[in-house]
Amino acid sequence: MNLQSNNDQELVKLYIAGNESGLQELLRRHKSKIYTSIYLLVKDQYLAEDIFQDAFIKVINTLRSGRYNEEGKFLPWVMRIAHNLVIDYFRKEKRTPIITSADGVDVFNMLHFYDESAEDRMLRDQTHKDLKAMIHLLPDEQKEVLLMRHYADLSFKEIADLTDVSINTALGRMRYALSNLRKMLKTKEVSYKG
């Protein structure tokens, strides 16, 4: 059954009606957006996977119990659940994110850049690490907006609703996030040519 042309709301309805492939397609469609947003906040692959899984368990329980009423806004809804789980985690840990690299080998990179030279690969790996570290250095509220906008593809209205601020504040935070990244890149004199 090809569900790629169905919108999220149709997939949710299919799933609620008992068709598991609705959930499969929703996962396929959104897993990277949601997971990357979590991962770049918590900076640990296994913790990010735990939170991702917990978020979808809540999604499943809510959908199965008939309590879902987001009407066509599946992704912002899941992002809100994931966002709350991340906040819960940091509250429990009573700490704010720190810059430690707990991630392993980046399989994504290995798959897509197998034909480049060792020197190019080293440079790219370094720029990856630099960029990741710079994102982690951003103030939490700026980092959140950047991740939700760029990775989760949420609108500023959706981000504003999710983070309980005005649209202008969300826009301003995105601007500051980009400005600060730019500043840090300049400071580090990292070259991001092509």
């Binding site: 598991e20 959930l23 499969q24 996962l27 897993k31 990277s32 997971y35 990357t36 991962y39 770049l40 692959q45 990010a48 996977e49 991702f52 899984q53 979808f56 368990i57 499943i60 980046d106 994504f108 990179n109 720029t127 990856h128 960029l131 990741k132 994102i135 760029h150 990775y151 991001y192």
Partner: peptide, 21 residues
């Protein structure tokens, strides 16, 4: 460059979720 940081959860996690469902 931001796109290149995109990652996916492991297949195990997806399978766990589908099994739970």
């Amino acid at each position: 460059k931001l796109d290149s940081l995109m990652k996916s959860p492991s297949d195990d996690i997806i399978n766990n979720i589908l099994a739970y469902s």
